[in-house]
Design a protein around this nucleic acid. Structure first.
Lengths: 238, 238
DNA sequence: TAGTGGTCTAGACCACAGA
DNA sequence: CTGTGGTCTAGACCACTAA
């Protein structure tokens, strides 16, 4: 197909269109999408080009492809996806997310740190939520998270919203990309120490994490105060 | 080409052969390799298949490909590659490796932890080396590293060997793949504290890292004791 | 201008899953 | 058995680089 309207590679344009169908929910989680051939015909491209677009989406973990079965939309709100941005692992090496007891969501305006991490301007509205993570009856992390309010319209008003970023993103038609986490050592303040069941001033991990959309826009900034005990933090490098 | 001798995908077989040429030094670092068409003819495959193999090698960071220029072998021993497995960053966000003052290499037999991390059997021979990392006149990390002796024949005998794992691997015809690092909090022992210029029992990061070859064989296990100060540890998640 | 990798096409056949 | 994605082929043309 001649690049009449855009010189951008066809397979990238295709990926964007197909990704949009997932983000909007036109293609639902867990459901098979049309096969390569049909999609290629629909868009008037050759099968190989469509294949390249779908392969790229598999790399972005938007779809699963399996020989003989088909191409399936991944569930972005599932447990897997929630755990994806937690590097804390139990003694068995499995990722831990932990049950969360939620304090209510509050609304406010961005402070300096929120502006820097979420790339906002001063006074931009944000939602804030505290999450307490427990695993096997032990509280191991207290999180204070902030999200740009523009991305989550009406979040504080209504009930029934999840506090988990993966579900929130799904509900608001956003797809999560990568995250960065800065790790340092902190001392537990009295209230944090009490919540974690440790002595005040015990050294703990300070986990400063920013999650971005697939497009690179910051979605959530979170400060986690974590007492590992027998668990461990595991980073992979490639 | 009919899969007479092997049912393994052609492009994987091609990747392995081409990778071997880099590992052995037949194709030297920084030098351009033959173009797609010539390689395809040499192996009697179609250009598209050769392209897939080369694309895979680019993903494994073995080569750089640039339109209009060619395909170039990456230098596995370069500064870039050394820093690749360090997640410590300065205030400017750049990765820090730091100058290393080397204590000499010693030989020994694997202890329990070395057996577990390097997948060795008890009493298997290992080389050990302590590295002291400094950045801008500050010592920030003390490393104790262990390597399976079978992979680095004659390492303790001769001089002139590097202590950097990237260079050592290159000299011994190995290509490095991924690494995993477990992070926890430790207290500085008196000798570590003195080396790091901090008070004894100051909380520090304990960095327990295993580097593997591209094939998944453990190459180096390292225990780093790290005092961050204004630097930070940065983990990426995808 | 010549040579490179990047994109795109239009098929073929194979391996695999499920009815 | 049918339909799926996986592999492989054999070209075409384009964008970029460097001489």
């Amino acid at each position: 197909m001649a690049p009449i309207f855009s010189t951008r590679p066809l397979y990238l344009q295709l990926r964007d269109v197909l990704t949009e169908r997932i983000a909007t929910g036109e293609w639902k989680a867990g459901v098979a999408i049309p096969n390569e051939g049909d999609l290629a015909r629909e868009f008037g491209v050759s099968p190989g080009t469509m294949r390249k677009a779908l392969g790229m989406m598999e790399g972005e973990r938007l779809v699963d492809r399996r020989q003989g079965r088909g191409t399936f939309v991944k569930d972005q709100g599932s447990e897997d996806r929630t755990i994806r941005f937690s590097n804390i692992r139990g003694a068995d090496g499995m990722r831990i997310s932990g049950a969360v007891t939620q304090a209510h969501i509050t609304e406010g305006t961005a402070n300096d740190l929120e502006c820097a991490r979420l790339r906002l301007r001063v006074q931009d509205p944000v939602y804030r939520v505290r999450r307490v993570h427990s695993h096997e009856d032990r509280t191991f992390m207290i999180e204070d998270a902030s999200m740009p309010a523009v991305l989550f319209p009406g979040l504080a008003d209504s009930n029934g919203h999840s506090h988990r970023i993966a579900e929130l993103a799904q509900q608001h038609g956003m797809l999560l990309g990568k995250a960065e986490e800065r790790i340092s050592i902190d001392q537990a303040s009295p209230d944090i120490a009490e919540a974690l069941g440790i002595a005040s001033a015990t050294p703990i991990l300070l986990l400063d994490r920013v999650i971005e959309t697939l497009g690179g826009r910051p979605v959530e900034w979170r400060l986690g105060r974590c007492h590992l005990a027998s668990d461990s933090y595991l980073a992979e490098m490639r």
